[in-house]
């Protein structure tokens, strides 16, 4: 662990009771959703993690509790550090408080997580789909959403695929 990062991690694990995991020198803090805003607030104000780099999620389907991990990466520009924060969420109507109040850049990142995983962020100012069409059904990056693979056309199946393919009107 980086010597600049370890006092920060120790202080945070004591105060918020979160679990710290290390892999290849990177620290992930795992904590429940209700403590997230407090943690991000103190990261920004006390430990000078000025920038929210990224918000994404991982789907552990078919595991249900927790099914999702919402993953935040925060960066300290002045100290050159990155910290990963993970929030486990259950599969049934997953929801977590928004980080928009602390980092305004969370706005689009959280909209993307909502669009792709169906995780809602309470208190978010603009919870619409961002990437997929507004009337799209389902959340594409969930593991139970099909990839949508279409059969590739070769000589042996040329006619069957052509028959299935939608034809445009002139």
């Amino acid at each position: 662990m980086d010597e600049k990062l370890s006092p920060i991690v120790t202080a945070l694990t004591e105060r918020f009771g979160c679990e710290a995991q290390e892999f290849r020198g990177e620290i992930s803090l795992i904590l429940p959703a209700e403590k997230l805003t407090g943690l991000l607030q103190s990261l920004r104000d006390e430990f000078s993690f000025e920038q929210l780099v990224d918000v994404t999620a991982v789907d552990y389907y078919p595991q249900e509790a927790p099914r999702f991990h919402v993953v935040y990466h925060v960066r300290s520009l002045s100290q050159g550090l990155v910290l990963c924060v993970r929030v486990p969420l259950d599969g049934n109507a997953p929801s977590t408080p928004t980080a928009e109040g602390v980092y305004p850049s969370a706005n689009w990142y959280e909209r993307e997580v909502f669009d792709m995983f169906g995780v809602t962020f309470t208190g978010h100012s603009d919870m619409r789909r961002i990437v997929m069409p507004a009337d799209w059904q389902g959340h594409p990056l969930r593991k139970d959403f099909p990839l949508g693979y279409e059969e590739v056309q070769f000589t042996f199946n040329f006619d069957t695929v052509t028959k299935r393919k939608p034809q445009p009107k002139e």
């Binding site: 892999f23 780099v53 990963c84």
Partner: peptide
């Protein structure tokens, strides 16, 4: 098993990959 984050400076800014 594990997850990592790597980042480079692209012409537009920070380009990162989160891989699990």
């Amino acid at each position: 098993v594990g997850s990592v984050y790597a980042a480079v400076e692209s012409p537009r800014g920070e380009l990162g990959v989160f891989m699990e």
